[in-house]
């Protein structure tokens, strides 16, 4: 319950405050969101598997976001930022789907 509330609180805060993102950071924000969602789904699955560990979650969360942003940044410098963004989204998307499927199996036993 608390995690869901924290998530909703963040979304509401972001929409209400609507701060201006520096132009240089704008391409990385959506990628960071996808990376964070990946860590989140992993955490939920770990929780259901009974092996959740908050330290692992925070480390994977931070490293996921940073690495995804770094990869896209590197791609931007090499002129393939758009393609690498797509790559990151595809890879993280597959992981999110896999974890979501595992969560579904846990919850619905199907």
């Amino acid at each position: 319950m608390i995690p869901a509330l924290a998530l909703v609180l963040g979304v509401v805060l972001g929409l209400v405050l609507n701060p201006t993102v520096p132009t240089g950071l704008q391409p990385y924000l959506p990628i960071a969101v996808v990376a964070a969602l990946d860590a989140l789904f992993g955490a939920v699955r770990a929780q259901l598997d009974g092996i959740f560990d908050d330290r692992v979650f925070v480390v994977s969360f931070v490293s996921n976001v940073l690495v995804a942003a770094l990869v896209v940044f590197l791609g931007d410098q090499l002129g393939v930022g758009g393609q690498l963004s797509t790559g990151v989204v595809v890879v993280l998307g597959i992981r999110i789907f896999t974890n979501a499927a595992a969560i579904r199996r846990h919850v619905f036993h199907a």
Binding site: A6, V11, G14
Partner: peptide, 19 residues
């Protein structure tokens, strides 16, 4: 710190959507 990470995730999502 877990709660913080979750708030940050939500915040980033909200900001990105607003953007």
């Amino acid at each position: 710190r877990v709660v913080t990470a979750l708030v940050v995730t939500g915040l980033a999502t909200g900001i990105a959507a607003a953007q």
